[in-house]
Every structure is written in structure tokens, then in C-alpha cells.
């Protein structure tokens, strides 16, 4: 008897289920959606909510009208914050569109990192209005470490990638019910810079992960109040 047999045997005895009983019928709840109302709305509403929720968790947000302006905006933000002008960028082709390599005041290299980079710039899968979270994944051009090791993480979010709830974000990586290796090795929802309240429950930001999470939000969207663009 292996431990596996022992454990499964005890479970089946406890549940009075025969071996090979097969999958149970889908539970009733599985077909009833329970998505919070705040995860729903028009694209403009969701964008506004995303910005509000992200701001609450100490994410700073910069807006640019088009992808080409991202590099300049980042250079300006780094300079204004007194941060280093050198950044490691996810080695993914999608990053070519942002004018990162020729932006004055910004030096970049495309690579993974072992911790000697102080600033990283990464793409995102989605921005999630429900909680102001961003979703990032690991892949050949998107090393995981860029989201965690540098002190400053700059994430690029496209307005038309802002979704309502967690499920909507997951639909962007799992539209066909992917499982196992068909999924990225990691899918992470990040909600603000690293923090801890382990010492006397006082919140301190920047424990093991980034001390700053900065989002550059690309594009705008019709439908704001008074016909304004959001």
C-alpha cells in the first residue's frame, strides 16, 4: 500500500464512495454566476473604477494617449520621482510599440533579472476594475522576476484591456478552458506594491517585492460623464 492508496482509501471509506465512482454531477452553484456588481459596467465605468481602486492601493497612474508616448512618459515620471533612468524591459515583441528604446532620459535593456535592476517595465494581460489589480503572466518574453525583484515596477495597461472582474481577466488567458502547460506557468494578480503589517500592524510598503507600482495607462475611451473621454 502506498500513502496514496491509504489516503484515497480512507477518503472513500469516510465518504462511502466506491473506487472509480467517476466525476460527480456538476454542483448547482456551478451554473449560477456570482460576480459582484462592482465588476460590471460600461467600459468607461470600469476604467474609472479601475483607476479609483488602483489609486486606493498606492498604485500611481500615468495616462498616455497612444502607445508611442509610453517611453517619454516613463522617462518623465522617473525623473520627476528622482528614480534611476535605467530599466530592464520584458523581452517581448509587444514592448516594441512603446517607444522605450529611443526615449530621451531612459536607458533600457531587454532581459530577465537577478535583482540588480532597480526599475522594470512589463506588459500586462489586463487591468481589473473590481479591485484595481493588474494581471501578469510568465512566458518566454515575460519573465516572472521582473514583476518582483526591482524596487520600481512599471506596468503598461491598455484601456481596452481593462475588464470588470477576476473572471474576465482570466478569460483573457484561458478563453478555451486551458489547463496544465497550456496555461502560462504563473498567472498573477497584483494589487499594489509589496507591503507588510507584520510589525505592530503598521503598514509598511516595499517588503520583498517592489516598493513602487506605477501604471502607464494607454489610450482613452468614449462614454464618460458629459460625453468626455475617460
Amino acid at each position: 500500500m502506498t500513502a496514496r492508496d491509504d489516503i484515497l482509501g480512507r477518503i472513500r471509506t469516510a465518504l462511502n464512495r466506491p473506487e472509480g465512482a467517476g466525476p460527480p454531477p456538476a454542483p448547482e452553484y456551478a451554473n449560477q454566476s456570482l460576480i459582484p456588481a462592482r465588476a460590471q459596467g460600461t467600459p468607461a465605468e470600469l476604467t474609472e473604477r479601475f483607476i479609483a481602486m488602483a489609486t486606493e492601493v498606492d498604485i500611481s497612474i500615468d495616462r498616455v494617449a497612444g502607445a508611442g508616448g509610453v517611453g517619454t512618459a516613463i522617462a518623465a515620471w522617473l525623473s520627476a520621482e528622482g528614480l534611476p533612468d535605467r530599466a530592464v524591459v520584458s523581452p517581448h515583441p509587444v514592448m516594441d510599440a512603446y517607444g522605450l528604446d529611443d526615449a530621451p532620459g531612459l536607458t533600457t535593456h531587454r532581459d530577465t533579472t537577478r535583482g540588480d535592476d532597480l526599475v522594470s517595465i512589463t506588459p500586462t494581460i489586463a487591468g481589473i476594475a473590481e479591485t484595481g489589480s493588474i494581471m501578469v503572466t510568465t512566458g518566454p518574453g515575460t519573465p516572472y522576476t521582473l514583476n518582483f525583484l526591482p524596487e520600481t515596477h512599471i506596468a503598461i495597461v491598455h484601456v481596452d484591456h481593462i475588464v470588470g472582474g477576476y473572471e474576465d481577466a482570466w478569460a483573457r488567458v484561458r478563453s478555451n478552458g486551458e489547463i496544465g502547460t497550456a496555461l502560462p506557468r504563473t498567472v498573477t494578480m497584483i494589487t499594489g506594491p509589496s507591503r507588510s503589517s507584520d510589525i505592530e500592524r503598521e503598514v509598511t510598503v516595499g517588503v520583498h517585492g517592489p516598493k513602487r507600482l506605477h501604471i502607464v495607462l494607454v489610450g482613452d475611451i468614449e462614454g464618460g460623464a458629459d460625453g468626455k473621454k475617460i
Partner: peptide
Amino acid sequence: EITCYTTFATGPKRPDDLD
């Protein structure tokens, strides 16, 4: 509302992954 990091991890490094 949610913790800072919520990570879903599936298996080891893939052949083309960098980390």
C-alpha cells in the same frame, strides 16, 4: 479587498521560459 499578490502557478518552468 485582496492581497497584493495572488499567484496561480502550474508546474515547473516551461522550456522557453526565462525563469
